[in-house]
Design a protein around this nucleic acid. Structure first.
Length: 577
RNA sequence: GCGCCCGUAGCUCAGCUGGAUAGAGUACUUGGCUACGAACCAAGGGGUCAGGAGUUCGAAUCUCUUCGGGCGCGCCA
């Protein structure tokens, strides 16, 4: 609807341009929505753009353009303003028609064909399954989930994916940690390494393992230390020796312990995220890349292209040839592939799955990783332009005015679960999306907890609930409002509200283009604000039937847009609070 | 040292591909419930858009530079 008005106005301007300056007929015509109400519904800067090539004053050109504008039933006034803007004021009927559009399209209002059905993959969270999700992950979860919904709404076919790092040393450390706690339950007094996973959840897993299998995985802890360096002298070496010892003593049972811990953590993460309203279509296993030989193949493919060389016994990818700072090891001296190697394979796999766009959402601390991954993609002969990396800055948590430190291994962190319970799902989701993702963020826990009613999410939900309440008291049939006569909506406040509704599809497209769901959140805040003003200024359930129904139709349209927007952000739209 | 991100009101943050007098929330000061929900509304004060230079009709926005902050620079993941 709004797009129709835009294209109509552009056509008018195009015609005027042909009459005034045919030699500049190729100039792109830009329409924007002025901030100030006095500047009409749409503004065009065409005359300002033409000033230089035509060597005439912008206001003069604007006046000529206005004089040549063909008449239109949508436009009540076109005038020159400011430095040479052309401001269009629409007729009230044109401004009101959006209400019918919203009510007719319902939950689909704002849906766009921008994506053209392209396949896009959004990979996010992808946390190591070595402990509960914590506040270092939830911002990425909220952003990724909202972005995925947004792109879906904007006409893309979206796959939401979680990459499971189930192949590395960190998983071995978790398995070891769990097993050591399990041995403690069976009387072991072996000192627990400082640098192993110390969180209580590890003890819980050990207890679960004991409950399910009794002493089946018990081994003599004294034999575990054979040949291990002193923890004090070489903490990491000590840990590796313990892992080797665990594998030696457990034999084939090691795989069970390992997978037990992995499965526990993964299902915990899955539940946690599901309760946060975050769902994935694919949980992609890193280990599967090794099992299917894809890591080997990917490196071989790089080597075949001449991008791999040997040095110091290791094999290196020449990423400097693709803009990276230094070359990177893909296969270590000990024969093991690096995490980077499996990541190359993973991205190769992503391309092979035929996505038109691949969006990786990473924590900002991984920014240095971008050139090597893009470089590898390019080296494989793939189009690096299809791969986009969105960085999410970490939220810094403050408790009683002090920064809270986070360490998974030390077990000191605020979990996503705790944060959700303290702040609430809706507020939490909204809070994160209300910030631009690449902006640093201070999260004051005490403020979020003690004054949740100050969170803007309630402001928006309240508007939704208020409308629901009014409609309930009206007790009429909402479907009937879809075709009601809107002409009683003549007040400036009502027409401004209509304009805000008409903007929603533009906001969706813009937000999708920018991968910026926060734009949707801000738009909803403004819409809710204008509605609250309206609510306080006018009564809806008035005696005069035509006016009452027109106003209720507008309210219903507002409620619909609020609901559609909140759905993108992953926040509920309650009828009562 | 090199690279990436950032610096806007006391605080937390918006500001769309450069547009008109830089905006919200919060805090502070006032006013509004015998009302369709006061988790709301109305009004007020509060700014060298970190500093400087450049690009042009026009800069918070683009370029360069200085200062300040965050992060990254492993045969870790």
């Amino acid at each position: 609807m709004a797009a129709d008005i835009r294209s109509e106005l552009k056509a008018l301007l195009r015609a005027a341009l042909e009459a005034v300056a045919p030699e500049c007929g190729a100039t792109a015509i830009q329409l924007e929505r002025p901030r100030q109400a006095g500047h009409g519904d749409f503004a065009c800067n065409l005359a300002l753009q033409l000033a230089k090539p035509l060597k005439r004053s912008p206001r003069d050109i604007a006046a000529r353009l206005v004089a040549e504008l063909p008449p239109s039933p949508l436009v009540v006034r076109a005038e020159v303003a400011g430095a040479g803007f052309i401001n269009f004021t629409l007729t009230p009927a044109a401004r009101r028609q959006v209400v019918h559009a919203v009510l007719a399209q319902g939950a689909d209002y704002g849906r766009s064909a921008l994506g053209g059905g392209q396949k896009v993959q959004v990979e996010f969270v992808s946390a190591n399954p070595t402990g509960p999700l914590h506040v270092g992950h939830d911002r990425g979860a909220a952003y990724g989930a909202s972005l995925a919904s947004l792109l879906d709404f904007a006409g893309y076919r979206v796959t939401r994916e979680f990459y499971v790092n189930d192949a590395g040393r960190q998983m071995d450390i978790l398995a070891l940690s769990t097993w050591l706690r399990y041995l403690e339950l069976h009387g072991s007094t072996l000192p627990f390494p400082e640098n192993a996973y110390r969180g209580d959840y590890v003890r819980a897993m050990a207890a679960a393992m004991q409950k399910a299998h009794g002493a089946h995985y018990r081994r003599d802890p004294a034999r575990l230390l054979d040949g291990a360096p002193e923890a004090a002298a070489d903490a990491e070496g000590h840990l590796d020796a313990l892992i080797a010892g665990a594998k030696r003593l457990l034999g084939e049972d090691y795989a069970y312990v390992h997978d037990f811990a992995l499965t526990e953590q993964l299902s915990d993460a899955r539940d946690d995220l599901a309760q946060f309203g975050v769902h994935f279509d694919v949980w992609f296993s890193e280990r599967s890349l090794f099992d299917t030989g894809l890591v080997e193949q990917a490196v071989a493919r790089l080597a075949a292209q001449g991008h791999v060389y040997e040095q110091d016994g290791a094999r290196w990818f020449r990423s400097t040839a693709f803009g990276d700072e230094k070359d990177r090891v893909v296969q270590r001296e000990n024969g093991l592939y690096t995490y980077f190697a499996s990541d190359i394979a993973y991205h190769l796999n992503k391309y092979e799955r035929g996505f038109d766009r691949i969006i990786d959402i990473w924590g900002a601390d991984h920014h240095g990783y971008i050139p090597r991954v893009k470089g590898a993609v390019e080296a494989l002969g793939l189009d690096p332009g299809r791969l986009e990396v969105a960085l999410v800055q970490f939220a810094v948590l403050y408790r009683e005015g002090r920064k809270t430190s986070m360490s998974t291994r030390a077990g000191e962190f605020v979990t996503l679960r705790e944060l959700r319970q303290e702040v609430g799902n809706d507020a939490c989701r909204f809070f994160y999306v209300l910030r631009k993702s690449d902006q640093h963020l201070d999260f004051d826990l005490d403020l979020a907890k003690s004054r949740t009613n100050e969170n803007p999410v309630f402001y928006i939900q309240y508007a939704h609930a208020r409308i629901a309440s009014v409609l309930a008291q009206w007790a009429g049939e909402p479907a009937r409002l879809a075709t009601v006569d809107l002409s009683p909506l003549a007040a400036e406040r009502e027409l401004a509200l209509c304009a805000r509704l008409a903007e929603f599809p533009e906001v969706v497209e813009n937000a999708a283009r920018e991968c910026a769901p926060h734009l949707v959140a801000f738009h909803l805040k403004e819409l809710a604000g204008e509605f609250h003003s309206y609510y306080n200024a006018e009564r809806f359930l008035v005696d005069e039937a035509k006016l009452r129904e027109a106003r209720l139709a507008l309210c219903l349209a507002v409620r619909q847009v609020l609901a559609n927007g909140l759905a993108i952000i992953g926040v509920s739209a309650p009828d009562s609070m």
